[in-house]
């Protein structure tokens, strides 16, 4: 065997193939970007265990993640924003983690997305599981996993074909995803509508709606189609009683230790606004929750300036509108003396 020779051939061909792969995907418009994953979340959660006296913490689902622009928040409130919202998840597991496992008693803003918030408290159900899995990862992550993440960041941000996300976006270009796109017949039913990525996140989990979603209506429509496919099927009925009771208990504990709890209902439009209006009428869900919790609460529909914002895919604000929303919201809350800021 002349293994050295084989190795040199393999190295040249292998690196050449990887470089070609990268160039090919770039030519297809794929760009390097950072993935929102459990490591990014855990890093933010770890900050809460340090001196947290000047922090504002955000929990909830993807709406508060997209709609609150952290740079603006930091600039206008002079507090350190910590984004712990989890996409497609109930706020309850994270709220419980903060109440039970931290001494945080600053401002905690909870984004309420009714279909997720009032869905269930069953730990295996996806809105709970998705959030709880982040907490579990934070508690259990190893030093090797931390190191892997640190090493992965420069690769993610410089190579288009590298992905390290927790979501399985159909726009990913790893081999498994590419194979998942192949369908022959409909033996197991029609294939799901592709769910395309619409993330642009920074290391501190400052999320922005990418420009290509805002500017390309056809792309935004693919996400809308996926929402309809995902949300349109039969769903178990909401468990308003259990979710509200659990949330109120946590809220009482948090406020009892001096925490400043604020509820926020972020905007939705189109299909989402319609199904949320029908399935989770404000008077029966949001209003009752606010009344039981007894803290400051802000519903976007109460403010005329929030009624015509641009949500390219019905659920999350375009970046400019998110910046506007954040600024206005801070102004409203300051006027309301909700942030305990002089």
């Amino acid at each position: 065997m002349q293994l050295k020779q084989s190795f040199i051939i393999a190295l040249i061909l292998g690196l050449g193939a990887v470089a070609s792969w990268e160039l090919y995907w770039r030519s297809q418009g794929v760009k390097p970007y950072l993935d929102d994953n459990k490591d990014l979340w855990a890093n933010q959660r770890a900050r809460l265990d340090d001196d947290n006296s000047k922090m504002t913490v955000f929990i909830g689902s993807s709406r508060i993640l997209y709609d609150i622009q952290l740079d603006i928040w930091e600039e206008l409130t002079d507090t350190e924003p910590i984004m712990l919202a989890v996409q497609g998840a109930s706020p309850i597991p994270i709220f419980k983690d903060i109440v039970d496992n931290t001494n945080f008693k600053g401002t905690l803003m909870v984004g309420i997305t009714p279909p997720l918030m009032f869905s269930t408290v069953y730990p295996e159900a996806f809105p709970m599981f998705r959030a709880q899995s982040k907490v579990a990862y934070y508690e259990d992550r190893t030093y090797a996993q931390r190191l892997n993440h640190k090493l992965s960041v420069p690769l993610q941000t410089n190579l288009a074909f590298i992905r390290d996300g927790d979501e399985e976006w159909d726009t990913d270009v790893d081999l498994k995803t590419l194979l998942r796109h192949i369908h022959i017949g409909e033996r197991a039913g029609p294939p799901p509508v592709p769910f395309n990525n619409f993330e642009e996140i920074a290391l501190n989990r400052h999320m922005k709606m990418p420009e290509y979603v805002t500017q390309d209506t056809a792309y935004a429509n693919t996400i809308k189609a996926a929402w309809v496919d995902m949300v349109g099927g039969d769903r178990p009925p909401p468990d308003k009683e259990a979710t509200t009771t659990t949330f109120v208990e946590l809220a009482k504990k948090f406020t009892a230790r001096g925490g400043n709890l604020i509820l926020l209902r972020c905007p939705s439009s189109g299909f989402f606004k319609e199904i949320e209006g029908k399935g989770f009428p404000r008077a029966e869900y949001w209003d009752q929750l606010v009344e039981k919790v007894g803290v400051k609460a802000y519903h976007y529909d109460d403010y005329p300036q929030f009624r015509n914002l641009f949500l390219p895919e019905w659920s999350h604000l375009a970046t400019e509108d998110a910046q506007f929303f954040t600024r206005e919201l801070i102004a409203i809350m300051k006027e309301d003396n909700a942030l305990n800021i002089n």
């Binding site: 020779q5 190795f7 051939i9 393999a10 040249i12 292998g14 074909f161 498994k176």
Partner: peptide, 15 residues
């Protein structure tokens, strides 16, 4: 062997 090795490496990287 070199080509086979390169294919293995490439498939690992893209997976």
């Amino acid at each position: 062997l070199g080509v086979a090795w390169a294919v293995l490496f490439f498939l690992i990287v893209i997976s």
